[in-house]
Design a protein around this nucleic acid. Structure first.
Length: 676
DNA sequence: AACCCTCGAGATCT
DNA sequence: CTCGAGGGTT
């Protein structure tokens, strides 16, 4: 039997190698050597052998791509290096401006070498390889935390489970690769045929099909979805000792990844980039996948690192979008909606039309000025598009098609929901309903309170809130916590199970963090970011309740407007009462103080002032590097300044620094600290 | 003037 | 999830 076992083992090995080879031929080189049926036979044989000898199954076996069990739900995965999105450009001027910005950053007039590639319309995914093994795959999420979709990604045949060793360049212990998962157009069409023949709804477009397939809880379903992936970046390219983006892609390809898109090119100047754009636009519909533009990246990795990133996007890349598809339709009505802060927003309701793959029937008109600027009226024929190919937008009215007797739009003088007065403060663009007890405001307020970044109360959606408020069961967030099974039982579409789920979610929301709670209060101008700043600075609710404008304005990022808004909120008796009810024993919401995020960088949290001219970099670059090290650059020296960096010919900031006893750094000192 | 945050909104899928 | 207007801060 032992001898037979050896034979089986080697047969399994051969099958795996063969299957992997055919996968590569089929998917990567587009040159299959055997028929699909023969391939299936090999695969089937391997599966049978492995089933009979489960001890021989290894994680790299091609069969393991579809073997994973369904998951309950997706677990969050943190991206150690954030996955940023790209800044967008919509016309050649934007692209030239981008090029100028890059040159200005280096104070250079020389042409920059750019790598350009088609921007495939799919879903961004991060892969993590440890010691050459694929250990995790996750979606982009909000850029900092995504969802674990490893089982689903493993079903994509062009994603190697094991990297191919390369003698010249061994792969690092840990490799974070980023790329785009998409569905090829042809496969998308076939999938939709299958969906329809099964009586299922077809997918609206390949992007949605790819996103939906990735978010399947059962990888066996994902395995039946024809997904593919291109890799185009790694988290810390400077660690791989490659000089350019182009070499990086070659390196990844050498390790067995599908990284090199044959459509990608290196352009030696921005003019070449524009030429490439025109050519690609001509050919975009011949490509086997949906393309919504072009990605332009500074080719040199060291220049990329010097440019760094803003909080939202890298400064070294631009997504140059193709002109969006436009359609015409007719405005049937302009409805006015009321938001959480009482803001009145006009929304155009239109005859539904298909625009870039989806049905569009509504579009926001933002505010009165915007409607007047575009002069949109009920009955008008309008041109619409999806801004950035996503959000519906009214581009303009076709004047020639305007029927007779249309009337210009005007904001209602009373709130369309509660009939109270409406005001537009001078200098502001929005009209607001003055009634804080307006049902629309209450509803939005509750919705905000329950939202994901606030108390995250699952199951409390807008429909349920409508019911609860309309039935007079809930008037403010505290009322939510006195709901019971009996009370909920009266509501339509509310069986015991979902009622219990809601109660559980409410109970669970009582243990939360200070920053979430502050955000949940819905103070004007205080979103997720400022809520966190407040939580870090005050550490608890009580001091925040007693604070004043002066104290608040001393905090970086809080100015007079925001300070006033917070004080107004905190001194309002209704709000104080609400906070008390929520936190006192009966409801008992507990708030955990924030953990000080102290990164290792010596500049994190420090305030620096630059003076004089630096020899090795422009002021812009110095600023960017300080920021990416977690520091801030201030314009003038004060007691709160930690360091003054003095270049050549320093100005009077230097003497101020001496007077205030602020530490002074020479350019050399500064560079040394940046190194750390 | 650059940058960033808030706020409101629409569409799709699960 | 993403966009865009508006507005605040530095």
């Amino acid at each position: 039997m032992t001898e037979g076992k050896e034979e089986i083992k080697s047969r399994i090995e051969t099958l795996r190698q063969e299957i992997n080879r055919h996968n590569r031929l089929y998917y990567q080189e587009d040159a299959p050597e055997i028929s699909d049926a023969e391939y299936d036979r090999l695969f089937h044989e391997l599966k049978e052998l492995e089933a009979a000898h489960p001890e021989l199954i290894t994680p790299e076996s091609p069969t393991q791509r579809v073997g994973a069990e369904p998951v309950e739900k997706f677990t969050p995965v943190e991206h150690p290096v954030p996955m940023l999105s790209l800044d967008n450009g919509f016309n050649p001027e934007d692209v030239l401006e981008f090029d100028k910005r890059v040159k200005r950053f280096f104070n250079s007039t020389e042409d920059i070498s750019y790598m350009v590639e088609p921007k495939i319309d799919g879903v961004a995914v991060a892969l993590v390889y440890e010691a050459g093994q694929l250990v995790s795959a996750s979606t982009r999420g909000n850029g900092y935390v995504g969802e674990d979709v490893t089982g689903n990604i493993k079903t994509i045949l062009t994603v190697p489970l094991t990297l191919t060793p390369n003698k010249d360049k061994p792969f690092p212990d840990r490799l974070d690769v980023r790329g785009e998962v998409y569905m090829p157009l042809e496969d998308f069409a076939q999938l939709n045929q299958r969906q329809e023949s099964k009586g299922l709804a077809p997918f609206a477009n390949p992007r949605n099909a790819a996103a939906g397939s990735l978010r399947q809880l059962d990888p066996r379903i994902t395995a039946t979805r024809p997904l593919n992936m291109f890799c185009y970046a790694v988290a810390r390219p400077e660690l791989l000792e490659v000089d350019t983006q182009f070499e990086l892609l070659k390196l990844l390809t050498g390790w067995g990844m599908r990284a090199y898109n044959p459509e990608a090119e290196v352009c030696e100047s921005i003019q070449e980039v524009l030429k490439f754009y025109n050519e690609l636009e001509q050919r975009r519909h011949e490509l086997p996948y949906e393309v919504d533009g072009l990605v332009i990246k500074v080719n040199s990795i060291s220049l990329q690192n010097r440019l760094g990133t803003t909080t939202r996007s890298p400064r070294w890349a631009l997504a140059f979008k193709f002109a969006p598809e436009v359609e015409t339709t007719v405005v049937k009505a302009i409805e006015v909606q009321v938001g959480r802060t009482g803001a009145l927003t006009p929304v155009a309701h239109m005859e539904p039309v298909q625009v870039s793959g989806v049905m569009v029937s509504r579009a926001t008109l933002h505010n009165e000025d915007e409607v007047k600027r575009k002069d949109v009226r009920v009955g008008d024929t309008v041109i619409i598009q999806r801004a950035g190919d996503v959000i519906p937008e009214v581009v303009r009215v076709i004047q020639e098609e305007r029927p007779e007797n249309t009337i210009p739009f005007s904001m209602p003088e009373t709130c369309p929901v509660c009939g109270s007065g409406v005001v537009r403060l001078s200098g502001e663009a929005v009209h607001r309903c003055v009634n804080a007890a307006c049902p629309a405001q209450i509803k939005q307020h509750l919705f905000h309170f329950a939202s994901k970044d606030a108390l995250d109360i699952d199951g409390l959606g807008s429909k349920l809130i409508d019911l609860l408020v309309d039935q007079d069961m809930v008037h403010d967030p505290a009322d939510l916590y006195s709901l019971t099974l009996e009370k909920l039982a009266d509501l339509p579409r509310m069986a015991e199970k979902s009622a219990q789920n809601l109660l559980n979610a409410l109970e669970g929301s009582k243990k939360t963090t200070l920053e979430r709670f502050i955000f949940a209060l819905g103070i004007r101008h205080v979103g997720v970011h400022l809520a966190r700043i407040l939580a870090e600075n005050y550490g608890a609710l009580e001091p925040l309740l007693e604070t004043d404008a002066k104290e608040l304005e001393a905090i970086y990022e809080i100015g007079p407007e925001v300070a006033q808004s917070i004080v107004t909120f905190m001194t309002n008796l209704k709000n104080r009462d609400l906070i008390q009810r929520l936190t006192e024993e009966k409801i008992g919401i507990t708030l955990s103080p924030p953990v000080k995020s102290d990164t290792g960088s010596p500049l994190s949290g420090k305030s620096l002032v630059l003076t004089g001219t630096l020899k090795t970099m422009t002021r812009e670059e110095a600023k960017a590097r300080i920021q990416s090290a977690g520091g801030r650059v201030a314009g003038s020296v004060s007691k709160k300044t930690d360091y003054v960096v003095g270049g050549e010919n320093p100005g009077k900031k230097m003497t101020q620094a001496e007077e205030l006893n602020v530490k002074i750094l020479s350019e050399e000192d500064f560079l040394k600290i940046l190194e750390e």
